[in-house]
Each structure stands twice: as C-alpha cells, then as structure tokens.
C-alpha cells in the first residue's frame, strides 16, 4: 500500500516538471491511448513512454511491484477476452485469416492476435506514464500545483493530507489486527470467507474510531494555525511554471490531436491491415 505512492527523489528533467503539468500530460496521454486502436501509433506511444521513463532515472526495481501487478492484470484481461469472445478480432476487422483450427470455437486467427496485441500495447503505452507520475511527483508539490491549476486549495490540501496519513493508518491497521488476532480473531486462510469478512469488522471499527479521533486533532491543529483564513494560500513546495511544463502540456495536446485526427481520417478507431 505504502509502496504504491512512493515518491522517489532523484535529479532528472522529469522531476523538475511541476506536478500539475505531469498530471495534465498523464490525463491527455491516457485519453490519446484509450481512444485509438491504431497499432503503429500505440507502438510509438510505448516507445516514447519507455524513453521518458529512462529519462527520469527511475529504475525498474524501484517500481517492480507495480509492474508485476500490471502484468498479472494484463494477462488476466487477455485470457478473459479470449475466453469470452475468441473471434472478437474477426468481427472488428471484417475478415478471417485462420492460423490454427483449435478446439471448437477457440480458434486462432490473425485478426484476434492483432486485437490482443492492441490490448497489450494499450497497457505498455500507459503504465510507464502512470508509474512515472507516481514516482516523480512530490505529493505536496502536486497539491500546490493542483491549486495553481484552479482546484480549491482546501481540496488540494486534503490530497496531501491523505497521503500524509497513509503510513500511519497502515501501521495502525497492523497493530490492531495483531492484538485482535491474540484474542482469537483469525484473519488467515484457516477461516472461511464469511467468517473472515465478519472478523475484518473487528479491525475496521477500531480503525475508524481512532481515525475519527485523528481527524479531530488535525482539524483543530489546522484551524489553530490559520488554515482557511484567506481565499488563497502560498505553498512551501510550490514551483513556478517553466518552459518545460508548457512543452509537456503541449505534447499531451499534440498526442490527443494525433489520435483524434487519425480516427477522423481513417473513419474508425481501428488500424486495419487486413482490408
């Protein structure tokens, strides 16, 4: 849980960008990748994403857990698509090139393979960017830049605050769960599912109650130090928008524009080499 929001502090051009610019790029990038099934374009995005990743000096092992998780999802996604509609590609591309007869409806066609390739490429084109955003964005700086983008500072700050309390809550969950286990509340696989769910309530309730205590303390502490006094506030971690940030957002817009104009020019989202 803690590792999912792991900001890794390194010196790189990607780190120098403001969180807001990176966030904008992330959203635009996802949009560009989601709206198209143009295989060459997705390939290009993947290459670009990997290059940016290299640029950030984030190493593979820094984010290995996340990558493995994504790969599992990717595999699952592909298996399910194949199980439910083994000839989905045939429907989409309007042609059928049988490569292998298979068993019953489970055939192997070139069209289906291309469709699966597209699904894989969608993952590979976006996941590096998501990881990049998470690993190179300082949460406080992100809150500051969200505010700069026009999001109310109270909402922006609550994002930072949530991140501030994640480690505490994880630790507390751990402590409570241990003390409840000592009273005989089994959370391991030895118990059946229903029992485990009711047992989980024995941990969640104290966690919520102590969470409420915590909220009480922190709201008082914030008010006592003037939070909410003015319509705006400044940010210790705030940064000025640089040329890099503007270029970054322009890149995002360009990517979406390419994706959309391809769809319009092509008359559909699918790049079809079989036609």
């Amino acid at each position: 849980m803690v590792n999912l929001f792991n900001y890794i502090d390194r010196q790189s051009p990607v780190h120098k960008l403001t969180g807001a610019a990176k966030f904008a790029l992330l959203i635009l990038w996802m949009l560009a990748a989601m709206t198209t099934f143009c295989t060459p374009y997705l390939c290009a995005l993947t290459v670009l994403a990997v290059l940016l990743f290299r640029l950030s000096k984030i190493r593979f092992r820094d984010v290995a857990v996340m990558i493995w998780l994504t790969l599992v999802f990717l595999a699952l996604n592909n298996i399910l698509i194949y199980l439910f509609s083994p000839e989905h590609g045939v429907e989409i591309y309007g042609s059928r090139t049988l490569l292998f007869a298979g068993i019953g409806r489970y055939t192997v066609t070139a069209q289906q393979l291309l469709y699966h390739l597209n699904v894989v490429l969608k993952y590979t084109a976006t996941i590096p960017i998501v990881l990049l955003f998470v690993a190179t964005t300082n949460p406080s700086e992100f809150a500051a830049s969200l505010n700069r983008l026009g999001v109310s500072y109270k909402i922006s700050y609550s994002v930072a605050l949530a991140l501030r309390y994640i480690p505490d809550t994880v630790r507390e969950f751990h402590d409570i769960s241990q003390s409840q286990q000592a009273r005989g509340i089994e959370m391991s696989r030895k118990e059946n599912m229903v029992k485990r769910l009711t047992n989980a309530a024995a941990i969640i309730l104290p966690l919520i109650l102590s969470g409420m205590d915590r909220i009480d303390v922190v709201t008082n502490a914030m008010e006592l130090r003037g939070f909410g006094k003015n319509k705006t506030r400044t940010w210790y971690m705030g940064r000025k928008f640089s040329t890099g940030d503007i270029l970054c957002i322009l890149l995002g817009i360009l990517l979406v524009a390419v994706s959309l104009s391809y769809t319009l020019w092509n008359g559909g989202r699918y790049w079809n080499p079989f036609g």
């Binding site: 939070f227 006094k229 003015n230 506030r233 210790y236």
Partner: peptide, 27 residues
C-alpha cells in the same frame, strides 16, 4: 504526532505562513 500536518518538517513549520500567503522566498 496528530498535530503534524505537513508531509515534511519544513512544510509543517511553514504551514501558518502559507496560510498567511507569505511569498516563497520569505517562506
């Protein structure tokens, strides 16, 4: 622990000043 608002020591110390809209360099 509960009254520690910022993600880091520096931000927590700066909190009251931020709310007063003090400029970045002075912060």
């Amino acid at each position: 622990d509960g009254q520690f608002i910022g993600l880091t020591v520096a931000e927590d110390i700066a909190f009251a000043l931020e709310n007063d809209c003090v400029g970045r360099d002075e912060l």
